[in-house]
Design a protein around this nucleic acid. Structure first.
Lengths: 97, 97
DNA sequence: TTGATAATTAGACAGACACCTAAATATAAT
DNA sequence: ATTATATTTAGGTGTCTGTCTAATTATCAA
C-alpha cells in the first residue's frame, strides 16, 4: 500500500473532490468553482490525487475531465479491513478516562 | 467524519502501530521497540492516534497498554465506501496517458 | 525517602505542505 | 497570426509535522 494514497486522503479539500467525483466524472473548472480557493490551488490538489492514482484524467478540447480510480480506493478499504479485522477479543476497546 | 482521523492515518509509523494493535492490546514499550526511532517520537504518534480516537489506552502499574478503537476505523471504512459506492458508470475509469 | 523503571511533555529544528500571485502551456476561434 | 479560454507550472511564504535531546511525571520497590 502506497503512502501517497493516505497522504492524499489527509486533506479535507481532496476528500471532498473525491466525494464529488463519486457522483460521476467532472471537469476541472466546474470542480474548482465549488471551493473557496484559487484555481491553481485546486489544480495542485488534482495533481496530488493523480500522483496517488486516486483519480484519472482525460482531455476533451480545452477542458480536462477527472474521474475516480476505484481500484485504489478498494485497496484502501482492504487495508483498513485488515487493520481491524484481525483484532483479537482479548481486551475490548474502551474510552480513555 | 473528523479530519484528525485521516491526518493520523497519513503517517506510515502510525499505520504500522494500528496494524500491530490489530493483533491485540500491547504496551507502549513493547510497541516502541519495534520502531527505529526514540521512545518520545513513538509516544508522540500514540498521542496523535489517541487524539483521533483511533486507539484507547489503559494504565497497569508503570506500563500503559494501547488497543484499537474499532468504531472509528469503521467510520473510515464507511466514508470510503460512500466515496466510491455512489460512482455512476457513465465514464469508466482508465489509466492516464 | 531514595532510587529505578516506564512513559510522557517541553522545546528546538529541518523538511513538508497548502495556499497565494504571476507566468506558461494547450486548445479553440477569429 | 492573434486573441480568448481552460488549466497547469513556477516561485514564494507562513504554518504544520516528525524527529531529536533533555526534563518531567507516575509508579514500584527498597
Amino acid at each position: 500500500m502506497n503512502n501517497d494514497v493516505f497522504k492524499a486522503l489527509a486533506d479535507p479539500t481532496r476528500r471532498e473532490i473525491l466525494r464529488l467525483l463519486g457522483h460521476g466524472e467532472q471537469n476541472a473548472g466546474q470542480l474548482a468553482e465549488r471551493f473557496d480557493m484559487t484555481k491553481p490551488s485546486v489544480s495542485h490538489h488534482f495533481a496530488v490525487l493523480k500522483q496517488a492514482e486516486l483519480v484519472c484524467s482525460r482531455r476533451e478540447g480545452q477542458q480536462i475531465f477527472y474521474s475516480l480510480n476505484t481500484s485504489v480506493l478498494e485497496d484502501v478499504l482492504t487495508w483498513l479491513w485488515d487493520a481491524f479485522g484481525h483484532e483479537k477479543k482479548t481486551a475490548p476497546s474502551r474510552k480513555p478516562l
